[in-house]
């Protein structure tokens, strides 16, 4: 039988922070990761739970100052439906559409994906490639953590035990191109074997690539940036030679593992091929 730990439902953020200052509590947002744990079959269930669902301050999507701000409680379904996302950052809706099936998209939140810190969390490589900033807060106030400093070890984040993810800020860049690819066993409800997000800046198709950011999921103990491959691609053009070299570089750079979902060798080859393909498509050859 599932355990039913005590839960409190604060009505606003100050109340949530007061509760967090009193004793450690495990937050619940959409519950699509946390509720699986209350059966006690996967890891130990939480002792005390903090229900975030009434914290309306953490909902919604806004555009201001050249940045897209997404509240931690925003669901995948809301991201998919958002006109703002469709106009300013459609790749975010593309990524949201690959998570679970409808039932999971209606409940699962972006903040939950971030805090859960699974190496296979689908939005995390995208947030890394977009150089998102994760805003967190707790009894001692708010602070901003760049995405590449957020997932610090296997299933471990830079959050203090009394801190919450509040929102994500994503800078919008005029000439930026972004690509997102997820490889799983089937279209719906599949945990990723490989997730890849690539961003670069390029004013014109013939221009050289600048500010290249390549991030990967499911190939390490946490979502990672592939920095050697980024360096390789920086200043290059989308030619066959570039694609071959980048594919080789990324295959040498990552150290995936064998597990129940896939093998290290498969992950390395697929990552290299996806990258090759994206560069080919970008070059139009």
């Amino acid at each position: 039988m599932p355990v039913e730990p005590p839960v409190e439902t604060p009505r606003d953020l100050p109340e949530a922070f007061r509760l967090l200052a009193l004793a450690p509590r495990t937050p619940i947002a959409g519950g699509t990761d946390l509720m699986v744990r209350i059966t006690g079959e996967i890891g130990s269930p939480p002792d005390q739970v903090l229900d975030l669902s009434r914290l309306d301050e953490l909902r919604g999507i806004a555009l201001a100052g050249g940045q897209l701000t997404v509240g931690a409680l925003t669901t995948y379904a809301e991201i998919r439906r958002s006109g703002l996302v469709a106009r300013s950052l459609p790749v975010l809706a593309e990524a949201a559409a690959t998570v679970g099936a409808v039932q999971i998209q209606n409940r699962g939140t972006l903040g939950g994906n971030i805090a859960n810190a699974s190496p296979a969390g689908d939005t995390l490589p995208l947030l890394l490639a977009l150089e998102a900033v994760i805003e967190v807060g707790g009894p001692r106030g708010e602070r901003s953590i760049p995405a590449d400093q957020f997932w610090i070890a296997y299933r471990t984040t830079a959050l203090a035990p009394d801190e919450l993810v509040l929102r994500v800020r994503i800078p919008l860049v005029e000439a930026r191109q972004v690509r997102f690819r997820k490889v799983g066993t089937r279209r719906a409800q599949a945990i990723s074997k490989v997730v890849l997000a690539l961003a670069w800046e390029q004013a014109d198709r013939k221009d050289r690539w600048g500010h290249v950011r390549l991030a990967l999921g499911s190939v390490a103990d946490r979502p990672i940036r592939a920095r050697s491959t980024e360096l390789y691609l920086e200043g290059s053009r989308a030619t066959l030679e570039t694609a071959d070299g980048a594919a080789e570089t990324v295959a040498a750079e990552i150290r995936p593992i064998d597990d129940v979902r896939s093998t290290a060798d498969y992950r390395r080859q697929v990552t290299a091929r996806i990258l090759h393909r994206i560069i080919r498509d970008a070059g139009g050859w």
Binding site: V7, T9, I28, G30, G31, T32, M35, V36, V49, D51, S53, A77, V102, Q103, I104, N106, R107
Partner: peptide, 13 residues
């Protein structure tokens, strides 16, 4: 109005 899986929804919500 939205379909959800009730095994993952806590009563408080």
């Amino acid at each position: 109005g939205e379909v959800v899986v009730s095994c993952l929804v806590p009563a408080c919500q």
